[in-house]
Design a protein around this nucleic acid. Structure first.
Lengths: 210, 210, 210, 210
DNA sequence: GATGAATGAGCTTTCATTCAT
DNA sequence: GATGAATGAAAGCTCATTCAT
């Protein structure tokens, strides 16, 4: 019976997966509001109703898509960070890895950048736990750095996590849009290092020129 | 002068204004997609149809709201910046002023942060000229600073404008959300200075420890 | 004062006329339902509201247009018919004149053929008196012809007026449509005579071959 | 056989049929423009949205209703005509059958007579193939008759098909309207024969008295 | 579990008509 | 009489979601 169940799980998981993959394609092509549930169903090769066996509603597809992606990213990120001890180096790794992922999963990134916020309930009611976790990796690093006197203590970690994420995110948005407009002015890999330079300089040195 | 102004103020402009003000209130309460055109009409004290004398459609209300607000902000910003010569100081002024505005026009900021991107056509087809202008203020300052050897030359202005704006924007978003959840961890005024510290340190000093 | 009034009447009649002429143009271009009252107003060079000083509503424009045209046609028709005594010749004159008018006032005829029936109240509630009058010219001729033993007595005049009018009307419709499609298979002038041949043969001879 | 039929009858076809029947009733009562889609849905016992599974839009209901009816009429007509060889007799059969159908399907005829042309796209863009076919039956008969020297060769078949159809159609209209006004002056069955007399006399004899 | 036909609430937008000026 | 800004009722259509099979 256990075996039976496992087989079924696999089957269903396959459907769930196909729906998510279909959703990425459809959302990135038509946008969230422009996509019909039946579009996703067709793309995934399932019936409309089937989607509701795996997802609560249309919003939920986007949310789970986001969550799922973050799960992978969180894993990768934690593994990569565990190989580094220096808080400053960790920050550099974080930034580099985040922007690498954007480049690697372009369609997905487009959806995240452009469509995610269109899910009405997303930002307000449902800031997903995992997103908070993801941001908190940054604040944790900073807090650790402050404890070991490596990072300026007057920088509020909750503020810094947003500053760093916001900078990356907006750069990623610019990159995604510039791709759609076929005019690209900067490459993400290069940005990652420069951006890390900026923040590391700012976080370590209490001196400023103005 | 008051009289002069009154003459210039067409009756129609009054209605248009009332609709925009009503829209801010309604959007910030119910969200863009949750707001019906008739809600805005009621709030503004006009008939549904009247809205379509001044706006092409519901999206257009949001877009014009954004545009209008940016017009004011751009003006104020330019005036403030013209009193400063040092590129570094200009950046500090920019950041401070931006976050001050968020604090000053909370409802409007909420709409900008949470609802603007939900207008399907906004980010993709209609990145408004004025928004580009606004961002370009930053890149112009940086370019000037690079010419006068005050700012690191290896920092791409197009990237930096997004990094700075993104950091501010995400901090503002966190602030807006924390207000809605009634848990506030940082104040914007303080953030502005810290954030400026970070970027100025990063933009001036090519040295970094890792 | 009488003179004063006459001048005013002229002025107003001019406006009324301009509205009617504008309506012909607009209706024949966009169709009745596709035409906005404001389109007609613009075409006529008057304000929207002005139209309601001369017409009860949009339907009324079409109805009066129809009525007005019929008034002219009725006049012309009666004059032409009065010069003829023979009922059979009168019928020939009637058919010829009707189709001539269609050719002469093409835009108007298009409106009559294609748009008139779209006025919801037209066919049902408001078969205009003058239209009845117009049709009755035919039945009167027939009745007269029957009294003078020239026309078969077993042909119901009420039926014949519709048969003759329907034949003419459908031929006109075909002609109007063929013009719009730029493929014309027959000319109206020729039709008129052939059609008269048909009906005169049928009305005079009780014999038939099958 | 009954069972066979039941199997062939898809559930969907049943719904489609109910909508069409409901539409006849609603259109003939309230007129095309006076009917709301939801009226038809209620009459058919389906949801509003269901209608859009079977019809493109409101216009399409009318068009398909027309087309469907013509399909039946065309079939019956062709069968009836195939039993007749003489072109003149065929014409008589055609007229009789057409007017019989009007009498038999009164509600449907009312819709055809009064509402069909109100579908904005009907007459202009979408003269249905089948209607052309229907009219062409007449012109074909005439052409055949001309080839066998039974019918006058100077009568343009394209004109005659419209003349005959127009006469029938207008007589039918008068009959439908007279029913609504409860004053009936002629019966269709009688008209059919008289009308055939007229046209046959006119088509066979080139002699006329005026 | 899977299906997809059916549902029906919901909303933007149009435009004939009015009426204060 | 003339204007045209303002009105607001009215309805077609979409599409996320359900549920009988």
């Amino acid at each position: 019976m256990a075996r039976q169940k496992k087989i079924n799980e696999k089957k269903s998981d396959d459907k769930r997966q196909r729906i998510l993959v279909g959703a990425i394609k459809v959302f990135s092509t038509k946008g969230f509001h422009g996509s019909k549930v039946s579009d996703i169903a067709r793309e995934a090769g399932v019936a409309d109703g089937t989607i509701y066996l795996y997802f609560k509603n249309k919003d939920d597809i986007l949310i789970q898509l986001f969550d799922e992606s973050l799960k992978v990213l969180l894993n990768d990120m934690r593994k990569a960070l565990s190989e580094e001890n220096d808080p400053l180096k960790k920050i550099r790794v974080f930034i580099r890895m985040h922007l690498d992922s954007v480049e690697k999963y372009q369609s997905l990134a487009e959806v995240m950048q452009l469509e995610l916020r269109q899910s009405s309930k997303f930002m307000k009611e449902h800031t997903p736990k995992r997103f908070t976790e993801y941001l908190n990796i940054i604040s944790d690093i900073i807090r650790r750095g402050q404890e070991t006197e490596i990072i300026r203590k007057d920088m509020h970690p909750a503020m810094m996590k947003r500053a760093i994420f916001g900078a990356m995110d907006e750069i990623a948005l610019g990159w995604v849009l510039s791709k759609q407009r076929k005019r690209r002015t900067y490459e993400l890999a290069e940005c990652a290092d420069k951006l890390a330079d900026i923040f590391l300089a700012g976080l370590t040195l209490p001196k400023q020129g103005s």
